[in-house]
Design a protein around this nucleic acid. Sequence first.
DNA 1: CTGAAAGCGCTAACAC
DNA 2: GTGTTAGCGCTTTCAG
Lengths: 340, 340
Amino acid sequence: MSKEENLMTSMQEIADKAGVSRATVSRVLSNHPSVKADTRKKVMYWVKKMNYEPNMIAQSLAGNSTNLIGVIVPEIAYPFFSEIIEAIERQAFYEGYSIVISNTNRKIEKEKNIIAEYKKRKVDGIIAVPVSERESVSVYKKISIPVTVITKKINNFNSIYISHYKGGEQIAKHFINSGFKKIGYIGPISNSTSARKFAGFKDYLKNQGVQLTDIIECNPPKNMNATLVAESVKEYISNKEIGSEVFFANDDISACEAINAFKMQGYDIPNDIKIAGFDNTLLAREMNPRLTSLAQPLEAIGKKAVQVLINQINYHTKPHMYEMESYVVERESTLNLNIK
Amino acid sequence: MSKEENLMTSMQEIADKAGVSRATVSRVLSNHPSVKADTRKKVMYWVKKMNYEPNMIAQSLAGNSTNLIGVIVPEIAYPFFSEIIEAIERQAFYEGYSIVISNTNRKIEKEKNIIAEYKKRKVDGIIAVPVSERESVSVYKKISIPVTVITKKINNFNSIYISHYKGGEQIAKHFINSGFKKIGYIGPISNSTSARKFAGFKDYLKNQGVQLTDIIECNPPKNMNATLVAESVKEYISNKEIGSEVFFANDDISACEAINAFKMQGYDIPNDIKIAGFDNTLLAREMNPRLTSLAQPLEAIGKKAVQVLINQINYHTKPHMYEMESYVVERESTLNLNIK
DNA sequence: CTGAAAGCGCTAACAC
DNA sequence: GTGTTAGCGCTTTCAG
């Protein structure tokens, strides 16, 4: 029990073995040019032999950088976010960073705690989906850590996002090009982000002289439990005849819920009613029928977020807005059988 | 530009303001009992006032603990894992730990890199879904970091898992109780984990005197892209008439793929063919029809994993096997309309 | 009960 | 080119 803990090979040991100073070992390891090839070789020999691995904690303390990126999302388990996270992890790993992740559950209090935690941990930067444009942002401003915002456009922050308005337009355009005349909408109509999809959708249709036949309003989902959507649909159906051939549901999960609700009332998808979703998550790919959905380039968003953040960390680049391109992925849920 | 970087309030500053030594501040902050109430108050006054936050990096270096848990999963974005991750995050946060996450993509090389990274980072412990029982485990053994394994049972490691064999049995039992006679299976029959589900399923049926009517073999999925399952199903159908009323698909994603394939061939689910999945992920809850599925208690697994790991970290507890209870969640995909 | 002092393992001027 | 010397910000004996 006496001589424990002396197991970690430290830089000093390498220095001793190689007959040089710690500084030289450090130089070799960080590829400092001014080291004689001979010395470098000697040091590397022992590094390999002793299987030396630098202690990142010590490096961080001395060097002022943790190579850690903090990631803040509302809900890790919603496929939309988990797919972005996967992309972030991939790029971060590639760039030599690790990621720490937390869930806000859309609670500003939790978000504040997370940020405080990340600050104490000295993460080099943060990639975040802010809970609230107002409250979150004021917190982000106070901390002196680079923050890159994703999926939302926030002034004075590096932001990587798609235009939800355009996304709505794209769906509308797709519907019209597919020959649909009677078009409906399922989702929130007033919550900020969701409402923008709706606005783009509605405006585009209006410009084309198309009136929305049905609007099934739902509250914005507070979490992945979207059963409210199914209920809204059911309630709507029981009060009113469906006049639409096709619906745009505000996100994939809502689309799934709506499909289930419609089916339960005897409607067949896509024969009686067609539906499109938004986000193009795993749900859209696996649903039956497979879901037409507006694809956000999740892989690209994650990758870009890391790149932009790292730039911000290293070069203090000025905030910039990166609007990514979205596109419609067509699948069976909106097959227009009349047209064919 | 001259006096940058002196912004962080350090412990020394608090000590100065409060007229005590750094040691005392440290004691106050770590709730050391032997501090006069008066002194404590004085120190806390300045801590609050200066908004002091300890530097965790320094704490880690001095104190030998990072309060970091490394999490290793095959695929962050598969709902099964992302739901566990969410549970892990919740519990870890509650216990004062942060989590760093990486994807192995089921590649042993990536896993080794991750472990090396975690080691350099001095994570206090690791929660892992090993890529391979043989190879991964030998790596885990070498590092001197507590490891808790989840979703698999590995000797000499704390393991939190369900019995896949029993899970298979439970599905079989459920089928029989539901009055099904002609039963089929879709999935791998030889890969380790998946094969155990199959074994339990098959054995239970056999004991009940039921022969499997159809076995649609698929390779174990190498990632979330399970289109191979749909192809296997299609191919099977084209060669052979389906003789089963109900199928057990090895996981939810396979069940979804199978449903899509069956539908494409004109079968209605659940009228013509019933299907059950495994894992009870988001997919099962949202699929149409909603999927009967064997539920792994994901929340419980994640929570337990954190608790067990922390115990292992603090008290060097001996490895223990924690077999969690699974259960069938019945939904529309296996509705037996003949029985009603 | 509190302070002084010795690190934790590494980096980065600054000398030689 | 390489070694010496200060730290980074905190914890923790050891005295007093």
